[in-house]
């Protein structure tokens, strides 16, 4: 369970988050969407302890983030936006280091590393420095690092970026399996179709505020407005309606040379 109350973040005069309130239930996949610069990554960065909040409180797994950050960090897994991989290590060395930090015993760690490298098709690259990895391989390794210690909560910032369809499917399968096994997952992404497919609940953030929140099964049932009785067809429609600009028509008249 993640409970966020009145969470705000101010970066040198810019209000990145403005009194956000959110509850994310156990055993669920929660999608967090919004346009670029809306505050998605800032929220994840605060929840994972990367950035301290300006105001508000966060409770994760019953622990207060300010009072028990280390206990929370032991029990979560993270794929941050910038992946946080040690470029100077090989893929295998990186996983070993991460596993050891989370306190895994050597025997279990070796088995898990072998399985993860095999599953993500990184076995042939296990002895190569991470700096030689492609973007997709880095994403796979970051995902492997985030799940190696079987975290109770997984935070994923833009996990579907730069990945091929095969890995995307694998990732989805793992996330669903984890959810079914009682884990909680929070994902930020622009891949609305993916989110609609796997998430139990979604929230849309715009300009630092939550502007929409619903269970995904209710999305198609949601009535757009009382007068037209028109219904939404997808999360994308809701997204464009809620955060889409009002000057789209004017913008269409631009770029006349194209």
């Amino acid at each position: 369970m993640i409970e966020i109350k009145e969470l705000s973040k101010n970066f040198a005069g810019v209000q990145a988050l403005d009194k956000i309130n959110l509850s994310i239930h156990d055993k669920s996949i929660f999608g967090f969407v919004g346009p670029n610069g809306a505050g998605k990554s800032t929220t994840i960065n605060i929840l994972t302890g990367i950035v301290p909040p300006s105001e508000g409180s966060v409770k994760i797994l019953g622990y207060d983030l300010k009072e028990n950050p280390v206990e929370i960090k032991r029990r979560i897994g993270v794929i941050p936006e910038r992946l946080a991989l040690f470029d100077g290590l090989t893929g295998e060395e990186h996983l070993t280091f991460v596993g050891k930090i989370y306190g895994l015993e050597q025997k279990i760690l070796t088995n898990r590393i072998n399985e993860l490298l095999y599953f993500f098709e990184l076995t042939s690259a296990r002895d190569r420095l991470i700096e030689t990895y492609s973007q997709g391989m880095r994403k796979k390794l970051a995902f492997a690092s985030a799940i190696i210690h079987a975290p109770d909560i997984l935070f994923l910032d833009e996990p579907f970026e730069n990945v091929d369809p095969i890995f995307r499917k694998k990732m989805r399968d793992i996330l669903i399996r984890m959810r079914n096994n009682g884990k909680t997952i929070l994902i930020t992404s622009h891949a609305l179709i993916e989110l609609e497919d796997i998430c139990d609940e979604v929230a849309i953030i715009n300009k630092g505020k939550i502007v929409y929140q619903s269970r995904t099964e209710d999305i198609r049932k949601k009535i757009k407005d009382e007068i037209s009785r028109e219904t939404y067809q997808s999360l994308e429609e809701i997204f464009l309606d809620v955060v889409g600009g009002s000057d789209e028509e004017e913008k269409d008249n631009k770029l006349s040379w194209l």
Partner: peptide
């Protein structure tokens, strides 16, 4: 400086 982006790991892990 050698750890570059990997330094981010220390922020969200119990290191």
């Amino acid at each position: 400086g050698f750890e570059k982006i990997g330094f981010g790991f220390y922020l969200f892990s119990p290191a």
